[in-house]
Amino acid sequence: MKAEKSFPELEKEDGQTVQGNINRKPLRNSRKGLFLQKGYKTSSWALILLFLTIVLGMTIAVVLSAFGEEWYGTFLPQGYTIEWFIKAWQAYEVGEYFKITMGIVLTATVISLVLSIPTVYILARRDFPFKQALISFFQLPFTLPDLLYAIPVASIFYSIGLAETIPGLIIVNLIVGIPFSVFILLPYMESLDPRLEYAATSLGATKFKLFQRIVLPQVVPGITASAINIFIRMFNTFTIILLISGPKTQTLNVMVFSVLQGSGSQPPAMLNSLALTLMIPLLFFSFLSLWVSSFTQRRLGK
């Protein structure tokens, strides 16, 4: 780089500078740079290996523990079994809670969609003062810390007798369910061709078949995908449910948390098995979305 400064300029008689024939110094790498680069690479790899070892190690450890027959002091369990899963499943009635959760969340999803679709339609198709403010308002419930509304809601629900009831649990899910539906349906609705509506309204009831063929296929995939997202979102509702849940009226993740919170005496393998049942929804949704996408594709003949 030094060559730059002492760069020679040869002047011709007429004052014009001309091409200097003296070659520049040969190019050289910076030693320091190479050294630093090596150090940077090594430390990055060390960081990655350390972090991933811990992530993988702890995941494998918890899975092995849940499936291990007996594991104490040895590097690996003595043998493998699904005994702990069955035990955990039976002792804590996982199936029962799974059913309750599904019921609550499914109902809440449908209600959220029904209540929010008209709103989304207006927001997408009309312009009015304070529209942006209204949209921001709809985002508040899932951007604000949930504790802020969860505690008063719990207090209100206990005083009016909705707490520890299934309808109560469904209703509190709407606090996030409705705004979240608005949030994810809005861009979708905005992207829909407005001509669809004219088609749909001018068709009338007699041309139901046409509606079914043209309008429905365009709307259904988006709504379905949104519904799955809303469903997942509500499946993970935790704080508010924990606050108003009763012994028999709670969702799967709240039940698992309550067990893990309070039981020092249970064998860890069983607790780990119980915790891993929380993966069921994850697997369930993976299959669901695969199924839905292949189903809609087949239906739409794409």
């Binding site: 995941t59 523990s65 993740n253 780990n272 915790a275 891993l276």
Partner: peptide, 19 residues
Amino acid sequence: TIFPLTLGSIIVDMAVIAF
């Protein structure tokens, strides 16, 4: 690196204990 997010807080807590 992102994988623990899919496990969720409770499973990660149990996994940290196990490890």
